[in-house]
Every structure is written in C-alpha cells, then in structure tokens.
C-alpha cells in the first residue's frame, strides 16, 4: 500500500523542483526584482543587499543546517535505538520524558543559552541546532519503534531473527515514516532557528534581514525573508516527496 501511495498522491518531483528553481533564480537574479524593491524603498541607495552574495549566504545556511541535521539524525536515531534495546531499556523512560519536555523549550531560548557557553560564531549555532534538532528525532524514532504492532515484533522474534536482523529488516523500515516526519520537523525548525543565528554572528540568510532591520532598510529584510521562505518551502516539499502518508 505504501509503495502504491507514493505516485498516486500527486507529490511528484514537480513541486520540489519548482521551489528549488525559484530559490536559485531568486538567489542569482535578485537584481531583476529591483523594480519591486523600489516600491518599498524609493529613496534607498543600496537597494540590493550586497555585503555578500546571496548564493554564498544560502550555501552557509545549508551547510550549518545540513551538518546539524546529519549529526542530529545519527545521534537521535542512535540514542532512540539504544534505549529500545534490552541493554539500554533502563534509560527509556528518562529519554522519552526528556525528549517531550525538551520540545517545550523555545528554540530561540536554546540558541540564546548556547552562546554564553559556547561563544559567538558558527560552531555554537551548529551545536545549538544539533541539540534542539535531536528532540523531535528522538521522540519520533521512539514513537515509531514503540508503535510497531506487537504481533509483528513477536513474530519476528518467534521466527528466529536476531536482534540486528529485527532492527534492520523489520523495526527501522516500519518506523521509517514516523522517523522521517521527525527529521522533517527538526529540519524545518532548524532552518528558522539558523536564520536567527545571524544575530549571534553566524553569517547566513538571516544576515540581510537583521541588517535590514538594524539599518531600517525594508528591501534587505524582504530579500532575506524571501530567500529563507523559499528555502524552507523547497526543503519541506522535498520531504513531502519522500513522505507520502499523513504527516500530522
């Protein structure tokens, strides 16, 4: 059923490709929208943000989010798997509660708390994103693994599959949609939080917005907001492509 669902849901490659191409063309051809920005900032000299190339800012943004997401996936899925194995079961209640309490922490507060400990720059952003991004991944991986039909789990054991075989062939594939939903949430939040990271010295797509607000240049704010919005939609539609079932 799952396999069949993918093509018939209408989530082809079309919408991610569309958003991606919009994002790239906006990055490269911001000059072309000058007329539009003139409307909001009729008197400004520097109509287009020019302290760095948009494409470079996009690259940095993606790098920070990507590295944090990759580490968060490795650590988060790893931790959730570890606490659902017989050896680590003792830690399951604590980790489960921590993951759900942690989700009430606002990302901005986590980011702000990371700075006194880790200082300014790119590294603290990555660490903060990693820590915060862990939570939805851990929570969903736990939910996915714990949500497997007990009959299926019992049959897998009764048929003589080893722990590793059960994990790889049964548990992870069955939990995959839920895990993927967790990764999607994690990345969506992190794209937004990384932008706020521009206030603590990480240079990325948040830069034009922050500097626009500081200097009162609405055009710069709009440029940054437009690019971040497009980036979020591109990434989200990519996830939607791979995750057919209900994401709610």
């Amino acid at each position: 059923m799952m396999r069949k669902g993918r093509s018939s849901r209408g989530y082809g490659w079309l919408s991610p490709l569309l958003w991606l191409s919009l994002l790239l063309s906006a990055c490269l051809g911001m000059e072309g929208l000058k007329g539009l920005f003139r409307l909001v900032e009729p008197d400004s000299q520097a109509l287009i943000y020019d302290r760095a190339d948009f494409i470079v800012l996009l690259g940095r943004h993606l790098l920070v989010v990507g590295v944090a997401a990759l580490l968060a996936i490795l650590l988060g899925v790893g931790a959730a798997v570890a606490v659902t194995r017989p050896g680590g079961r003792d830690f399951l209640p604590l980790v489960g509660q921590l993951a759900s309490i942690g989700q009430t922490f606002p990302p901005v507060a986590v980011l702000a708390l990371a700075v006194p400990v880790l200082g300014f720059g790119t590294l603290p952003i990555i660490v903060a994103l990693l820590l915060y991004g862990l939570l939805p991944i851990v929570r969903n991986t736990l939910a996915g693994l714990e949500g497997i039909d007990p009959g299926v789990a019992e049959a897998a054991r009764g048929m003589g599959m080893t722990g590793g075989q059960r994990l790889r062939q049964v548990e992870l594939p069955l939990a995959a949609p839920v895990i993927l939903a967790g990764i999607r949430t994690s990345v969506t939040i992190n794209i937004a939080t990384a932008a706020i990271g521009a206030t603590v010295g990480a240079s990325n797509l948040g830069d034009p917005i922050i500097s626009g607000i500081v200097n009162g240049n609405t055009a710069h704010v709009l440029q940054g907001a437009l690019l971040i919005g497009l980036l979020a939609l591109s990434v989200d539609s990519l996830f939607a492509r791979f995750q057919p079932a209900s994401s709610s």
Partner: peptide, 21 residues
C-alpha cells in the same frame, strides 16, 4: 501547513512591507 513551514524571521520580515504600506 504552508504558513507553518515559513520560518518566523522570514514571516515577520515579509509582513513588514505590506503593513508599512
């Protein structure tokens, strides 16, 4: 869903222009 996907900083930024206008 679409709204929820847009990062907060971007949404604040995007609202800035029309409200100013």
């Amino acid at each position: 869903n679409f709204l929820q996907t847009i990062p907060s900083l971007a949404l604040f930024g995007l609202l800035l222009a029309p409200l100013a206008w």
